[in-house]
């Protein structure tokens, strides 16, 4: 009897070791030298739409902060050369293994500064921690509005002046609008994606790092113009290019 149990036990143990070891080898991260990247730029074709000004008189603190430079909506932010800011680029197809499951350790920061969200769009990976901080001497509330059917749970939290950062993460890929109800003009986005991502800077340029070699579909998301996709192939240690152009409405 005793020996039979021992046999079963050793069989179970060796199976566990085998599976575990196999998983380790297969899932091992391709080393950094082998990873490539995707770069490019996002441009707006046509004249950028007029962005409405914001009347912040409701809160004297905000009004004062914008006394000389009135705030504007940030639905479409285009640079002088047509570069589109706040576009999120991510790999929507073709990722596998650890590139898909790894969660970056960097903690992106979403700041409430002069009653405006900085940045206007914050991209992040599923499960990646991000921080909401306030630089203002007036109270804000952060009220993201995800679709609960995705598994993301809505929340709503005040951040009075001097309050510690709010640290959170999201469970599912989703484009989540976030707003401050105290300052109804404050609207921003949490773009939660699976895998590596990048956001365009003020010139419209971006770089997605840590892309293992392979063929991918890259998606660009802009809050007003929606999404565009492109196929791109990344060679080991090389940089692939994908440029996007959105047409102004």
């Amino acid at each position: 009897m005793k020996s039979r149990y021992r046999r079963i036990l050793s069989a179970v143990l060796s199976t566990v070791v085998l599976i575990g070891g196999g998983a380790l080898i297969l899932g091992q991260r391709v080393n950094a030298a082998g990873e490539g990247k995707i770069t490019g730029s996002v441009k707006l074709n046509g004249a950028a739409p007029h962005m409405k000004g914001i009347d912040m008189s409701k809160d004297p603190y905000c009004a004062k902060a914008h006394a000389t430079d009135p705030g504007h909506l940030e639905t479409v932010v285009a640079g002088a050369n047509g570069g589109l800011e706040n576009v999120v680029l991510y790999i929507s197809d073709g990722l596998s293994g650890s590139a898909l499951t790894d969660v970056p350790t960097a903690v992106p920061v979403f700041d409430q500064k002069n009653c405006v969200y900085t940045p206007h769009v914050l991209a992040m990976d599923i499960g990646q921690k991000f921080k909401v901080v306030t630089s203002d001497q007036t109270a804000h509330n952060i009220h993201p509005n995800p679709n609960p059917m995705t598994g993301n749970i809505p929340w709503n939290q005040s951040q009075p002046p001097g309050a510690p950062p709010v640290e959170k993460s999201w469970k599912a890929a989703e484009v989540i609008p976030v707003q401050c109800n105290i300052h109804p003009w404050m609207h921003g986005w949490f773009v939660v994606v699976k895998g590596p991502y990048a956001t365009t800077d003020s010139s419209g340029a971006y770089t997605i790092n840590n892309v293992p070699p392979g063929s991918y579909t890259v998606t660009a998301w802009q809050e007003e113009y929606g999404t565009q996709t492109q196929k791109v192939t990344v060679a080991g240690g090389q940089s692939a290019t994908a440029d996007f152009t959105f047409k102004a409405k």
Binding site: L73, T75, Q179, P184, W185
Partner: peptide, 8 residues
Amino acid sequence: INGATENF
């Protein structure tokens, strides 16, 4: 109604 476009 859309606060993001100021159509309050």
